[in-house]
Design a protein around this nucleic acid. Structure first.
Length: 957
RNA sequence: GCCGGGGUGGCGGAAUGGUAUACGCGCACGACUCAAAAUCGUGUCUCGCAAGGGAUGAGGGUUCGAGUCCCUCCCCCGGCACCA
């Protein structure tokens, strides 16, 4: 047979499929279910890279598979064509952004075809085309009418290089996501969408979506729902009060100062009351002008200024506490003011340490012992005990003194505090009594109390213990005699630093071990903050309540309000750019912002000569004065068009709807067509869009749903984030590293089918992995196709072996399952394994070979088509049905059973399928390899997993 | 720091709690060839002559049986950056 010429074959079939419009999708097909497979559409950057191949050619396998399973599959494609790169090209190279974009799209269309992808090009959507953005504008106006789009003067992220505003989400660690410049803050009047109105629904509706849990979790965190209390703190000598938000009102008694965000509205008023007005305004001014990056560069060192002479009153205990302004409190979250509880919040702790503010402990770590031996016993007397826990260091070595109790317990030196005795005195006394050491120096307090409940068997008491930790150093080894009575109870042992925690965990009652460990960690790390739950202490009538219990009770007692807050902020959608969808609004001096009448849509983006931003934060469109100046649609007076354009995330928030009805000139998508296709059955895209595009799009869809414009409240049924293809060196591909793989070149040399097979094979597509491109590995994929090609010459009409038949049916099952769950990296190997069996078989029937070709067709569409026709068929293999497997042919009737003795495999028996346990056992005992192991003892138990494993448990002797 | 995902041969990776290392790459040897490439065949976790032992980041646990489930710890990758 002739050579496998991938280039000629692929060109030929791509042409045939295109001419015959094989993949144009009708809206309905008799007897077929509709199935909508969507891949995030590309930005027309100019060139397809390997990442695009991974993004589009792999879901193409899935689309083709669904078609062979009798589905009417919509697999559309288009371009997310508005965006900054076009504008940058215009500015830097003097090109026309539209022409730049359109010519890039032409190049990419050609490249996309070389994949052999089965896109329906007849529904192509291009967001910069007026026939598309007409509807983007129309939908924006619907949201505007509904009150979901509004203008707001807000501090915006300002990129001095792009001369444009960025969304919070587009700022990466203080830098512009696109150009990497340092981002500043600037006040601007901008359009926003009220996504926060939908926070609750966006969160709750995640519940029933069959998405991967990590994606749902990321959205939950992004929405950031938290419940807490709003509590008013009165200002002394003033009728004012400030409202703080806290998720931990249970720590109210520990609040020792209050902090306002620099943006807080009350600062101006309070500053006049303070004696250091100018210092305060200087600080506020300084933080305002600070860029995000400067805040980070500060190394997170806390800064702030006290409002001298201004005191707030803690409503819980009426204590007067100072008020600070500090930038570690954010104006955009909660109420922009917090109560600071340094004992139970890391940030407050740092700030309090720096400004020497009081620290008050109001939550005790609480440990309830749940181990069998020492959990509290019902009906047994409960005794309160205050104990001192002493960590004692050796006088010359890095070792610590611990007790090894005869009852199996372990721990530091501890002792009950007696009436009138100080905590350190207790521990010093215990050290002398229990170990005889005399010369001890108290070094520092390790805090407390930590509370624990456990059962003490030697006293037959339930102990309710308040533990206080202390650190001591031994001055020398001078030692008294220890009483015999003490010696009988425990041995003192010196444990080196690394061994301390291990020794504790070995035998201490769990409660004891955990609070002892806490004291140890405080000693080693200096971190005294307890931000977790526990028992409330030092809080008047609320002491001894669990923190959870105390939250609402303390809130109620001070007249606080229980509220729900979200991290999610409204979506800023104004962009001071040219190359975007014009916002269809006219600003009138007397009527305010007025919607452009529907009949005048689209507001067409005018051609302009100069694409540079004005530099004052206005879009270059502001320079198109003829376009800008219009009459007000409402009053007929002079008015100006809005010159900002829309965030491109708006364009991509509804494109999946347009694919369902791409050519409709009356509506953006008719309800009838929507019902046929929406929701999207499967949506594949990049992990970077988990919280941006994916959340925006869900919001947009829900808003349209409420307007009766769409039929589904969730747009995407199944979602998968794909991974990344790295360069051969294991790094992200980049021109500077010189590790970029050019797919065009590889397709030219090895063929599109080879690249598809290799990408499918490289790793699991259902996980967000990163897979290095291995140039040798690609050759393996090519070799596989060539072997399939060569095998064609060996096919005959004779019947094939049972062995081959079994392998075939197993492969049908395996490959289908692998595609269903997007683990193509197990499907391709299954095909390779089948090929290995076929090559070794004396006879390969045409039927078996053709079945194998059908399994291969979604992966390698060109070569399978070529071979299919070569075998005499006159219609495309891609119109064939996916083969079905026969359950009875999945095994050859013989199975190999692993025989284990005490869990270790000692031999393998080949038996007819369904052999009963007794027979297998008898065979095992008669097997000369297995028998000696069985005979080593008497059989205690036999576990038999039919057709798989026989485990013989042999006992003692 | 917080959140999420992972640690299995030389490499990419496979494995409903049931014979760990499928499949591919690489490597070694052999066949074909004057020779090479291509192709085909055999081998390839590790220690051991063998019988057998040991390995899925480390340590413990549950189980007849653990890469898989539970606990403690270490390390790597991705995302977010003071969210009260």
């Amino acid at each position: 047979m002739r050579e496998y010429d991938s280039k000629a074959i692929e060109a030929k079939w791509q042409e045939v499929w295109e001419q015959s419009k094989m993949f144009a999708t009708p809206d309905t097909v008799e007897g077929k279910e509709n199935f909508y497979t969507l891949v995030e559409f590309p930005y027309p950057s100019g060139n397809l890279h390997v990442g695009h191949w991974y993004a589009f050619s792999i879901p193409d396998i899935f689309a083709r598979y669904q078609r062979m399973n009798n589905k009417n599959v919509l697999f559309p494609i288009g371009f997310d064509a508005f965006g900054l790169p076009a504008e940058n090209a215009a500015i830097k190279r003097g090109l026309n952004p539209r022409e730049w974009t359109l010519s890039n799209m032409d190049v990419m269309r050609t490249q996309l075809r070389t994949m052999g992808s089965s896109f329906d090009w007849s529904r192509e959507v291009v967001t910069c085309d007026p026939t598309y953005y007409r509807w983007t504008q129309w939908l924006f106006l619907k949201l505007f009418e509904k009150g979901l789009a509004y203008q707001k003067e807000t501090p915006a992220n300002w990129c001095p290089s792009c001369k444009t505003v960025l969304a919070n989400e587009q700022v990466v660690a203080g830098h512009c996501e696109r150009c990497d410049s340092i981002v500043e803050k600037r006040l601007m009047k901008q359009w926003n969408l009220k996504i926060t109105d939908y926070a609750e629904r966006l969160l709750n509706d995640l519940e029933s979506l069959p998405w991967p849990e990590p994606i749902k979790e990321a959205q939950r965190n992004w929405i950031g729902r938290s419940e807490g209390a709003e509590i008013d703190f009165k200002i002394k000598d003033s009728d004012k009060a400030l409202t703080i938000f806290t998720t931990r009102p249970d720590t109210l008694y520990g609040a020792t100062y209050v902090v306002l965000a620099p943006e807080h509205a009350l600062i101006a008023e309070l500053a006049t009351q303070a004696s250091n007005t100018s210092e305060i305004s200087a600080y506020v001014q300084a933080t305002k002008n600070q860029t995000e990056i400067e805040r980070i560069a500060e190394g997170r060192e806390k800064t702030g200024v006290k409002l001298e002479g201004v005191m707030a009153i803690n409503p819980a205990n009426n204590e007067e506490i100072p008020v600070y302004v500090a930038d570690y409190v954010l104006g955009s979250y909660g109420t922009g003011a917090v109560m600071a509880v340094p004992a139970h919040d890391e940030r407050d702790w740092e700030f309090a340490k720096k400004f020497d503010l009081p620290i008050k402990y109001v939550v005790a770590p609480y440990f309830l012992d749940v181990t069998e031996n020492s959990k509290t016993r019902p009906g047994v007397e409960v005794k309160n005990r205050v104990i001192g826990v002493g960590i004692l260091k050796h006088w010359s070595e890095n070792k610590y003194l611990m007790l090894d109790w005869k009852n199996g317990w372990t721990g530091f030196i501890t002792g009950g505090v007696e009436e009138g005795e100080s905590h350190p005195d207790t521990v010093v006394r215990e050290i002398q009594e229990e170990t005889g050491y005399r010369n001890v120096r108290f070094v520092k307090d390790l805090g407390g109390p930590n509370i624990a409940d456990f059962y003490a068997p030697h006293k037959n008491l339930n102990q309710h213990v308040f533990g206080y930790g202390m650190y001591f150093e031994l001055l020398d080894g001078e030692q008294d005699q220890v009483a015999d009575e003490e010696k009988a109870k425990h041995d003192p042992v010196w444990i080196d630093e690394e061994g301390v925690l291990l020794f504790l965990e070995k035998g201490a009652p769990m409660g004891d071990a955990r609070y002892s460990k806490l004291f140890w960690n405080r000693l080693k790390t200096g971190n005294y903050v307890w931000a977790d739950e526990g028992k409330v202490i030092n809080s008047e009538g609320f002491s001894e309540l669990s923190t959870e219990d105390a939250r609402k009770k303390i809130t109620d007692s001070v007249g606080g309000r229980w509220v729900t807050r979200y991290k999610l902020r409204d979506w800023g959608i104004s962009r001071q750019r040219y190359w975007g969808c014009p916002i269809p609004v006219v600003h009138c001096a007397s009527c305010g912002p007025v919607a452009v009448p529907e009949i005048e849509l689209p507001v067409v983006l005018p051609e302009i000569a100069d694409y540079l931003p004005t530099g004052e934060g206005k879009s270059p469109l502001a320079k198109a004065t003829e376009w800008v100046n219009v009459t007000c649609p409402k009053c007929g007076g002079a008015a100006q068009r809005e010159t900002d354009t829309l965030d491109t995330f708006i364009d991509s928030s509804w494109y999946y709807l347009r694919y369902a009805d791409a050519h409709n000139t009356d509506v953006f998508a008719s309800l009838e067509k929507q019902k046929q296709w929406v929701p999207v059955d499967f949506y594949s895209g990049g992990a970077e869009h988990t919280t941006m595009h994916l959340l925006y799009s869900r919001f947009f869809n829900k808003a349209l749903f409420d307007l009766g414009l769409v039929t589904e409240s969730e747009p995407y049924v199944r979602r998968m984030n794909r991974g990344l293809i790295l360069g051969p060196d294991g790094n992200k591909m980049s021109k500077s590293k010189g590790n970029v793989i050019d797919p065009d070149e590889i397709v030219r040399n090895l063929g599109a089918d080879t690249v598809r097979i290799y990408l499918a094979f490289i790793g699991p597509y259902n996980e967000v992995g990163a897979y290095p491109w291995n140039p040798d590995g690609v050759v393996g994929a090519r070799r596989f196709i060539e072997r399939v090609w060569r095998l064609r010459d060996r096919i005959t009409d004779e019947a094939t072996s049972i062995e081959l038949d079994t392998a075939l049916h197993q492969t049908i099952k395996k490959v289908g399952e692998s595609i269903d769950i997007f683990k193509f990296n197990t499907g391709v190997p299954a095909l390779m394994t089948l090929l290995n069996v076929m090559e070794k078989s004396a006879v390969v029937s045409q039927e078996v070979y053709e079945t194998m070709l059908r399994l291969l067709a979604p992966f390698a569409p060109h070569v399978s088509e070529e071979l299919w026709y070569d075998l005499g068929h006159t219609t495309s293999i891609h119109l064939e049905q996916w083969p079905s497997f026969d359950v009875s042919k999945l095994t050859s009737g013989e199975v190999s059973i692993a025989v284990q003795v005490n869990g270790k495999v000692r031999g393998v028996l080949t038996c007819p399928q369904g052999t009963p346990e007794a027979t297998v056992l008898a065979l095992a005992r008669g097997d000369q390899k297995i028998a000696p192991w069985v005979e080593k003892g008497s059989i205690l138990r036999v576990v038999y997993i039919p057709d798989k494993v026989l485990n013989i448990v042999v006992g003692g002797d």
